[in-house]
Each structure stands twice: as C-alpha cells, then as structure tokens.
C-alpha cells in the first residue's frame, strides 16, 4: 500500500493560493512566521494582499478585525502558541463578539512541534477557543481535509479557529472526499465501540481500529474535525449503536474533544466516555513520535481504553 505523507502547512498555502486567485476579498496576515507557515507563498503571489505585522500578535488580530469590518476576509496565521496564546482578549472582543468573518489558521498546535519544547507547544488552545461564543473550532487530520475545510469555511460566515499540526501526517482523505465544517466523517463503521478523534490523532485512531479488529473488537472510527459546532447527530447515532465512546485528541482533555463529546452524550444519551489526551500537563522537548508515546497519545492507549470499556459491559 502506498502511504502518502503530507504537510498541512503546504496544503494551507495551496488553499490560500487557489482561493485567493478567485476571491479578491481574501487577505493574509502574518507575524514574522510566514516563511515557516508557508503563507509567504501567498505574499509572493499577492504582495498587496499580505500584511506582515512583525512579532505583534495582538495588533495582528485587531488589524484583521478592521479589515473584516471593511469587507475583506482575513486569514491570520502564526504558531498556535501565540495565536490564540498571546491575544485571547483581541480574539474575544474584536472578532468573536462582533461575529466577524476572520479565519485564524494557526500551525504547530499540540505537542508535535517537538524539540522546541513546552513554550511553543499548545495544550489549551482548542479549549480556550471552544469557550468563546460564536467561534468555530476546526482541527483537520490531514492535507486534503485541511484544504476542504478551509475552502468550506469561506461559504460560512463568522470567526474560525483552525488548528494545524507541524507534523507530516499520513493522508487519510482524497481530494474528492466530501469533508464539511460541522459534519463528522465516519471513516470506518463498527459496532462495539466508537472512537472519535481529531487532528493528528485520527491516524492513531485508525491504527487502533486495525489493532482492535485483530482482537475481534469492532470499532467505529469518526473524524470529528469540527469541535464546534460539534456534529452531535453523528456522535449520538454512533453512541446508540455501540454504547461506548473513546475520544482521542492532541490537547488537554479539559475542554477539548472529550469534553465536547461528553457534554453532548450526557445530555441526550449517556454512555461511558473514555478520554485519550493530555492530562493537565505541559509538554517538553522531544521528537514528535517520542512525545506522543510519553504523553499517551498512541494507538495502544486508544486500544487499551476501548477494551476496558468493551470489557466492562
């Protein structure tokens, strides 16, 4: 089988070039990380529509708000440690409260930034963004879904937080798959347990599904790329079918995907939910794969959690 590794940043840059060639309202803002995030490709092609504000994230968000108020569609990008990390107030008051059409696309989310260490890793960004009213929160799993979800977001109004990974990932989708904001994708049907994952953990969930099937456990695998608004219909349908859920995310389990899924099933159809994610701690320097193992973000952990739920019935 051909395994294709891809970069979400490259995909994002490609999406910007494609969308920017058709929609001249699109402008891009960077904060001295545009070469790393590849938005410099947009800057090279459309210099008039690219604004590098230097290392000044709060100002970047405020400027994006003004551009949106004057009819532009700003894409704002830097590392997720800094947006939202350094400008929660600006995102809240200047973008979300007035419900502006600003797309924040932050890269290097989670632990998989690797050797840069905890100051540059993010465990809390998704939870913080989920808590802000009106904000959409999307964490794609691969390059093709990054392109599809960003393209779809242009058809929707309001603020978005996209969290991309620096790590190269195994491609899950094809360019023609239907991937839409707000609709979870069922990647594999199953009957014993539902594994709901987001971001880089979707690949780990698929691997967990393969390991489980060898042991006779049938897992349904769902990519919940959109954490907000959560596709509660798909999740509840699966919960009714399997009666047990494992969530997998590369961020703190406080306020992230596991929380979102729990909030939904608790109110409508309570089933046990086991959360694979970061347990209220900061990361550290290390290689991407080493960090996933040390912090328990592996297919093996998903398998363990799934078997425990299935076995306890």
């Amino acid at each position: 089988m051909l395994v294709q590794m891809s970069s979400m940043r490259d995909a994002y840059a490609q999406a910007l070039l494609d969308l920017g060639s058709k929609d001249f309202r699109i402008v891009v803002l960077g904060a001295d990380t545009s070469v790393s995030i590849k938005t410099s490709l947009f800057a090279d092609r459309y210099p008039d529509r690219f604004f590098n504000v230097g290392i000044a994230e709060a100002n970047m968000i405020g400027i994006a708000a003004g551009l949106a108020l004057a009819g532009k569609i700003p894409f704002v990008s830097t590392y997720s440690a800094f947006v939202p990390g350094k400008c929660l107030d600006q995102i809240r008051n200047a973008i979300a409260y007035p419900n502006l059409d600003v797309k924040i696309v932050s890269s290097h989310g989670g632990l998989t930034v690797g050797p840069d260490g905890a100051s540059h890793q993010t465990v809390e960004d998704v939870a913080a963004m989920r808590a802000i009213p009106r904000m959409h929160v999307v964490v794609p799993a691969d390059a093709n879904s990054t392109i599809a979800l960003i393209s779809h977001s242009l058809m929707l109004s309001g603020p978005f937080y996209f969290r991309l990974s620096r790590a190269n990932v195994t491609e899950i989708y094809t360019p023609t798959d239907e991937i839409r904001v707000g609709t979870a994708n069922i990647l594999k049907e199953g009957s014993d347990v539902t594994i709901i994952a987001t971001g880089v953990m979707v690949n780990e969930a698929l691997e967990a599904g393969r390991l489980l099937s060898r042991e006779g456990v049938s897992a349904e695998i769902i990519d919940s790329h959109t954490l907000k608004p959560l596709d509660s219909e798909t999740i509840l349908k699966s919960a009714r079918k399997t009666g047990a859920i494992v969530t997998a995310e590369e961020q703190t389990i406080i306020g992230g995907l596991g929380s979102a899924v729990s909030e939904t099933v608790c109110e409508s159809y309570p089933v046990p939910v086991s959360k694979v994610g970061i347990r209220d701690t900061f990361g550290e320097s290390g290689e991407h794969k080493e960090l996933l193992v040390k912090y328990g973000l592996t297919p093996q952990e998903i398998v363990k959690a799934s078997k425990k739920l299935v076995g306890s019935r």
Partner: peptide, 20 residues
Amino acid sequence: EFPGGSLGIGLSAAIGMALA
C-alpha cells in the same frame, strides 16, 4: 464602527480599515 471597550484594540482595528 467598532466594539471598543477592552483598551488597546481600537487603533489596530482602525489600521485594518485604513489598509482596506
């Protein structure tokens, strides 16, 4: 034109409008 209140943001937003 802008929901000011949290101080420090308005000039940034005005820059965005001026750039547009």
